[in-house]
Each structure stands twice: as C-alpha cells, then as structure tokens.
Amino acid sequence: MSRNLYIVPHDLTEVGNAALDYAFFLGRHVKTDIMLLHLVDNQAKIAAIEAKLWDIIKVKSVPESVEMFVLATVGDIFTDINKIATREHAQLILMGTHGAKGFQKLTGSFAMKVITSCDIPFIVVQKETKHQEIRNIVVPIDLTKESLQIVSSAGDLARIFDATVHVIGEKHADEGLSQQTKNRVLLIRNKYDEKGAKCDINLLPPSGSYAKKVMAYVKEKNIDIIAIAYHSESLLPQFDNFAQSLITNEMKLPCMIIAAKQSGNLYF
C-alpha cells in the first residue's frame, strides 16, 4: 500500500475499541489505512467476525484521512500478527491492554509475548487512555545499544506532532559507564538533528528505582507518551517488570514499544 498502514488487533472488547479510537486519533494527523484484525480458530467463524468488525466501525466517526479495512482470518495471535504486518508492510500496531490487573491475569506476559513476536513498533493503550495532543515524548535508555532501537520510531512520531523527544538515562559514578552514556547521548542528538526532530537530553540521579524516576519525570514534564525498546538482555535489573509497569502506567498514558533485536547495527 502506498499510504501508512496501522493494524489494530481487536478482541471485541472495550480495550479493542480503545486501541481503534487511538488509531483514529493518530489518523487525524497523518493519512493512513487502518486494518481491524481478528484471529479466529475456525474458518467457519470468519464471516460472522468480519460482520462484527464492520458493525464496530459503523458506529465510529472515522476521520476523512483514514481508510478502513477488516481482516478476520484463522491464526494465532503470537505467531500470525507479525506475518500479516510484514506482508502488508504495516508501520504500526495499536493494541489495548486491560491494565495492570488484567495484564497480569492474562499472562504472566500476554502483551509482551505478542509484542516480542513482532518486528514493528506497537502503541499500547488502556481503556482510559486520553487522546491528548502529543507535545512531549519520553525515551528512557540504558547502556545497551538495543535500548536505542526505539529512537527512530519516537522521532517519526515527534515529527508528525512537532513534539519534543525527552531522552533520559541514569548518571553513573563509574567514569567508563559515564563515557558510554555520553556517547549514546551524542548519537541520539545527531540522529534527531538529521531527522529534524526536537530533542531534550536529561540524565537522572543514579540512586533509586529507574521506573519510579521515569514516572516522576513523566509527571514533572507533562509527558504525553512513553517510548521504550524492550530487550530481555537489558542491563536494567527486572526489565520485564520495568517494561510492564510503563505499559500499564497509572497515568494511563499510551506506550510505544518495540521488541529490540540483538544487533549492534539496528538501533537506528
């Protein structure tokens, strides 16, 4: 397709509607096609599910800049979303989560398992996520190259909204680690200069929970969306909990997340 394509996996619940509504919000700022997707376990269910998906769309105010498609197909959410997204050259997947309680109930790591099965960015929203203009995006990084793989996607989003990307990391008493952080910051600033995206760099104090410091920064700077690269080999302790806490944050902010690949050359 020549235009952008966003895929919205819809589970026929309110959180599916929340993801679709947020896709419409983005679609009011950039022309895009939106595919409403539902995977079934039986071919006989396809026609009925497609009808339900169109019924969902009919009661929505679809932006003029958006063209809608539906797809109900036999498949597995953990293996086939990526195949469909790759085949259709999708730029973004928008998915709803039931929040911290539902998130844990559905998994251990239901949403993370879907995200890590895919090669393109997600935006995860909660049922109560507001559609506020994106003026400030926060990108928490660490000392791994993998943590930088969200930088490009966050910059693309920033350009759409003329937003500022706040890249944050932690200060280090160790001189070697401090130099690594400075090198990361220089790479990021150069990348955003090339993209024409506004960038603000901040290093947080070294002590205390990184997740808590990130959320304190979010509140202080009126952040509108959190953007992270998920990588299980992160230097951050308990990174799974870190990522999940940001996806299901109490402020109900949307979270852009990409499954980072273990390669030194993919982070931009």
Rank of each mutant, 00 (worst) to 15 (best):
I93F: 07
H231F: 00
N190R: 09
L92C: 10
V125N: 07
F242T: 07
E170C: 08
G99T: 14
K101G: 15
G108Q: 15
E175Y: 05
D119G: 13
R28Q: 13
D142P: 11
D174E: 09
D142H: 11
V125E: 06
R87F: 09
Y210L: 06
V218I: 08
E133D: 11
S263M: 02
W54F: 00
H231E: 00
W54H: 00
L36H: 00
F239D: 11
E170F: 07
I201K: 09
D174G: 07
S153I: 04
I77R: 06
I84G: 03
G208L: 09
P254Q: 02
M251R: 05
I257P: 03
K171G: 04
T248V: 11
I201L: 13
I223G: 00
A216P: 02
S245I: 04
I150A: 13
K130S: 11
E128R: 13
E233R: 03
L106K: 15
A163L: 06
S234N: 07
L5I: 09
F78W: 10
P140R: 13
R3T: 11
K83D: 08
R135V: 04
D80W: 01
A47R: 04
Q91Y: 07
S109M: 15
K195Q: 14
Q126W: 10
S209D: 12
Y22N: 02
K182S: 06
H98K: 14
I201F: 12
N241A: 08
L94Y: 05
R3N: 11
N265S: 03
I160K: 05
H98W: 14
T32D: 04
T129L: 06
F268A: 06
G176L: 14
K191M: 13
A111R: 15
N202V: 14
N241M: 08
I257R: 03
S61Y: 10
E128T: 12
K219L: 05
R28T: 13
P237R: 03
I123V: 14
A173M: 07
I150C: 12
L92K: 09
S263T: 06
Y6V: 02
T32N: 06
V124L: 12
L92W: 08
R159N: 10
D142V: 11
F25G: 00
A229W: 01
E67R: 12
V30I: 12
V66L: 05
K213Y: 07
A51H: 01
R87I: 08
A229L: 02
N249E: 03
A19M: 01
L143C: 09
F69Q: 11
H89M: 03
K130C: 08
A47L: 05
K113C: 15
I84W: 01
D76A: 10
L12Q: 04
T107K: 15
N183I: 06
F242D: 04
F239W: 09
P205F: 08
L177F: 11
I56D: 01
D33F: 03
G108L: 15
D156W: 04
L20A: 01
N241C: 05
A72V: 03
L186F: 02
I226Q: 00
R184L: 08
D33Q: 07
D162M: 01
G155R: 11
I226A: 00
D55G: 01
M95H: 10
I141D: 11
W54Q: 01
M215T: 06
F24D: 00
E64Q: 10
P206C: 13
E194C: 14
T73V: 14
S147W: 05
K130P: 10
